[in-house]
Design a protein around this nucleic acid. Structure first.
Length: 644
RNA sequence: GCUGUUGUAGCUCAGCGGUAGAGCACUCCCUUGGUAAGGGAGAGGUCCAGGGUUCGAUUCCCUGCAACAGCACCA
């Protein structure tokens, strides 16, 4: 006599075991028609599932967010059937729902190309139109393995073989086609609807392991209705418009060329952006009592052997030799070993701790060619890197003040908030359990002190210590891990760093590795995409253009630009032989935040007509007034705070 | 690094087995025009590199390099 509790609290009793379908029908014909699946005591299951004891049930309809996952999973099955019917001999593997869509990995001699999409999609639509019911069956393990092996589906067979003994082997049929699947599924292929689209093909390793064979993966996107699909496609276009590589070209910020792959040629405008950001970070760090240093680019392998890099990270390092000397040098991939050299130069006292050492030093890492991506993933970069040498007791307060600075920086740079992940001891680690206990406890305590809520990221710490990861969300909802703080007991030991304590004995300092932006290159890429190139005035590579309307106003335009430059702004006059319409268009497309238009009237009255990027209206201001207002607006946020 | 796709003017892209085209940008001329393209003329290319097939290759084939997408990687 199952009693079924619905979300609104009502309870319905049934005489015997019932299916979800029957329950929905009992509630009403509308629901019976709309229900796609149900949540049975919180777990998403098929409507055909039999309920034989008291339970809480919630029906999932198309309006429900949960329907997205079901649709995407079902459409993956439809894709697999379509592919196998069009391309016999193709083996199926796995096909999950993912963010925004789904994919299916196939094993096949020749990979698919986008040219195959039209035919596959057409077949998929036929399968959806046929609306074959999804039927769940449970098979004995051996039967399932035998069945798939007999069909030449060796990947599926392997999958089943590796399922734990306790797992029920379930098979879902849709018409003549079937697949191993955990479920749940909707009622039939028709529930998929028509709002799906195949997007791209790619290679993907079997089970995500690069030692395994490469499969051919088809990605698709799927939504509840056409409107959602269209919105998603539009969103993709938006993201493409924000692509920092495209904006970098359009705004003439930087370029990359074949002779220096993975390194950036920064053009004047891009470099101005870079230095403004770096100067800002330098001031922030200086206020927080960091000391800036500079250490060598090329360092003998001996030091890398001591630090452990030679052993662990050699394949990522650029090695340099010279003909006349029998030495092997390496371009530094990180600053930390060099910072320890400065720390250990002379005797250190506990009175000097915490000692905060910062460096904007270029690091080089040999990244795999396939990983390179614009200025976001490069082989030569500069971090806002610093190492804090401190005692164990100082870990918590140092962390707290670091998080406070980080929050301020992110806010200044236009990000609303960030998330923190706490990555604790990995399986493969150095140091004893006691140190780990202490380090993790200190970090947790630090988060408490700073009032920072964190998510747990188990086993993802660095091999030498736990770390906090700081994740930004950008204007179009993408997450970027930028900041990091790592507690390190290993490097001070390997490189023999010590200080004299109050007890006049030698002690090992703890080292905190920390960065807020990560690398300037990557962060600038993020900033470009965050603002879509429309930077706030203080960051804009060109802040003001003075556009003249007639040649009579040219001297005045030059004068205005000059006044702006004297006030510290990046400004220039556009006195080209063009109509004002063309000038407005040119500089708007170049994303110049402010255009000052000057014609005869302005020259006579010594005023300017100020036009903001994206706005259609203008404000008439006196010259002095405009210069003062713009100079004030262009002041970096940290300096504004100082004068406020 | 792996799989696939791509590589033609500064940019975006057409094109083709018979030694190359457009739009924008650029230069010059006309025009002095009031808030997102005024008009005209001109200049500009080792068609990624190297090999092969061919009477002839930018075009077809192979190799390399690079970019792009995804996977793997991101200490």
């Amino acid at each position: 006599m199952p009693a079924i509790t619905l979300p609104d609290g009502t309870v319905r009793r049934f005489d015997g075991p019932v299916t979800g379908t029957a329950v929905a029908a009992a509630i009403g014909p509308g629901l019976a028609k709309a229900a796609l699946a149900m949540e049975l005591d919180g777990a998403l299951v098929d409507l055909s599932r039999i309920i034989d004891s008291d339970a809480a049930v919630r029906f999932v309809t198309r309006k429900d967010e949960a329907a997205l996952g079901l649709i995407r999973h079902d459409v993956a099955h439809v894709l697999a059937e379509a592919v196998q019917s069009l391309h016999p001999g193709t083996q199926v593997t796995i096909g999950p729902a993912i963010e925004n869509g789904f994919y299916y990995d196939f094993a096949r001699n020749a990979p698919f190309t986008p040219d195959d999409f039209a035919a596959i999609e057409a077949r998929m639509r036929e399968i959806v139109a046929a609306n074959a019911p999804f039927e769940r069956e449970e098979w004995p393990r051996d039967q399932a393995i035998g069945f798939f092996e007999a069909r030449g589906e060796r990947f599926k067979a392997e999958l089943i073989r590796d399922l734990p003994e306790s797992e029920t082997i379930s098979i879902y049929r849709q018409g003549d086609w079937l697949d191993l699947c955990r479920g749940p599924h909707m009622r039939g292929t028709g529930d998929v609807g028509t709002a799906f689209k195949l997007m791209k093909v790619a290679g993907a390793y079997w089970r995500g392991d690069h030692r395994n064979p490469m499969l051919t993966r088809i990605y698709g996107t799927a939504w509840r209705d056409q409107k959602e699909l269209d919105a998603h496609l539009l969103q993709l276009e938006e993201a493409e418009k924000r692509d920092h590589r495209r904006i970098g070209r359009e705004m003439d910020l930087f370029h990359i060329q074949e002779e220096a792959t993975g390194s950036i040629f920064w053009h004047p405008k891009g470099w101005r952006l870079y230095t403004v950001l770096q100067d800002y970070m330098r001031r922030m760090q200086s206020r927080a009592d960091y000391q800036e240093v500079r250490t060598p680019q090329l360092v003998d392998r001996v030091l890398w052997e001591q630090s452990g890099h030679w052993e662990n990270y050699r394949e990522h390092m650029f090695i340099a030799t010279v003909e006349d000397e029998d030495k092997t040098l390496a371009l530094k991939p990180m600053n930390c070993p060099c910072h320890v050299q400065i720390f250990r130069h002379g005797l250190r006292s506990y009175r000097e701790l915490p000692l905060r050492m910062a460096e904007f030093g270029a690091c080089h890492r040999y990244e795999p060619s396939g990983a390179l991506h614009g200025i976001m993933r490069v082989r030569s970069f500069v971090q806002d890197d610093a190492h804090i040498f401190c005692t164990e007791d100082q870990i918590a307060p140092e962390t707290a003040s670091f998080v406070a600075m980080l929050a301020e920086v992110y806010r200044d740079l236009g990000f609303d908030g960030f998330r923190v992940k706490f990555a604790d001891r990995p399986d493969n680690r150095a140091g004893d359990e006691q140190s780990w206990d202490k380090a993790e406890a200190a970090l947790i305590e630090a988060c408490r002190l700073a009032g920072v809520a964190y998510e747990h990221n188990p086993g993802e710490g660095a091999f030498y210590g736990p770390k906090l990861e700081f994740v930004l969300r950008d204007a179009i909802g993408r997450d970027w891990q930028c900041g990091t703080l790592q507690v390190d007991y290993v490097l001070p030991d390997r490189l023999d760093a010590s200080y004299i304590g109050e007890d006049s004995a030698r002690h090992r300092p703890v080292m905190l590795h920390r960065a807020i932006l990560g690398s300037f290159e990557r962060f600038l890429g993020i900033l470009i995409e965050q603002f879509a190139g429309r930077f706030p005035l203080w960051l804009a590579p060109v802040q003001v253009v003075v556009a003249s309307i007639v040649s009579d106003a040219e001297p005045y335009a030059l004068e205005v630009a000059d006044a702006l430059k004297r006030a510290g702004l990046v400004a220039h006059a556009d006195i080209a032989n063009e109509k004002i319409n063309a000038k407005i268009r040119t500089h708007s497309l170049a994303r110049v935040p402010v255009i000052l238009v000057v014609g005869r009237k302005e020259a006579e009255a010594r005023t300017v007509a100020m036009r903001r990027l994206g706005g259609a209206d203008q404000t008439l201001l006196g010259l002095e007034e405009a210069v003062a207002a713009l100079a004030s607006e262009a002041t970096p946020p940290d300096l504004k705070r100082e004068t406020a």
